[in-house]
Design a protein around this nucleic acid. Sequence first.
DNA 1: GAGTTGGTTATCCATGTGGCTAACTATCTG
DNA 2: CAGATAGTTAGCCACATGGATAACCAACTC
Lengths: 109, 109
Amino acid sequence: MDNQLDTFFAAMADPTRRAVIERLAQGPASVTDLHDPSAMALPSFLKHVNRLESAGLIRSEKTGRTRILNIEAAPLAQAEDWLGRQRRLWEGKLDRLQALAEAMERRKL
Amino acid sequence: MDNQLDTFFAAMADPTRRAVIERLAQGPASVTDLHDPSAMALPSFLKHVNRLESAGLIRSEKTGRTRILNIEAAPLAQAEDWLGRQRRLWEGKLDRLQALAEAMERRKL
DNA sequence: GAGTTGGTTATCCATGTGGCTAACTATCTG
DNA sequence: CAGATAGTTAGCCACATGGATAACCAACTC
């Protein structure tokens, strides 16, 4: 029951974490690179990074003492799909309702 | 700082609430309609519905004693956009990196 | 008007989440 | 080796979240 989408959406529901994703979308970066602009204490920030990683949204590779983070695009695409599917379903319904309304209108005139 | 996306993603990070959205994408329904298949107590379920509404994901209209729920598509589209933007950014980077790698490869040969 | 149905409100409780500080390890750099 | 740098771990705290019951209100239905 604990869908992939669960952890994905939960991961994205925080501005700090979304900022990390936004930054990583433009290319890899280290933990401190990402942390620098933030007012938050490093350990708190690290927890966000770890959550992103355990949600499968980023990967990381440690070389020496620095840890380089990379975004993982697949989950984004997956969530995008789900949202699009729901939205299109609903918009399709709307279209059909509107068509029906118009048909009835024509018939009445 | 409390972005629209905050409340949106938080709202979607729960399977019960996503199930409501999935169902409403196929057309309007009443609270009990939606609750019926669920094992959860009604008041708990109601809290989910209310959260969806205050996140702007659904609208509701009460006629008599029943409350009819409607999905609101705009926020879905907005989140979809954000995700798509990040993903395309990243994929664009990948493409350019790959092109670069290929160019270097050609030059070496 | 008595009973039923559809929602709603009020508490309560356990757990999760997001922030902090302090203290530590591990890797450079001079 | 001594110090600085980059992460990490541990522990603490306030508050939000997701679930439950109990009791209630408001509208149908007979």
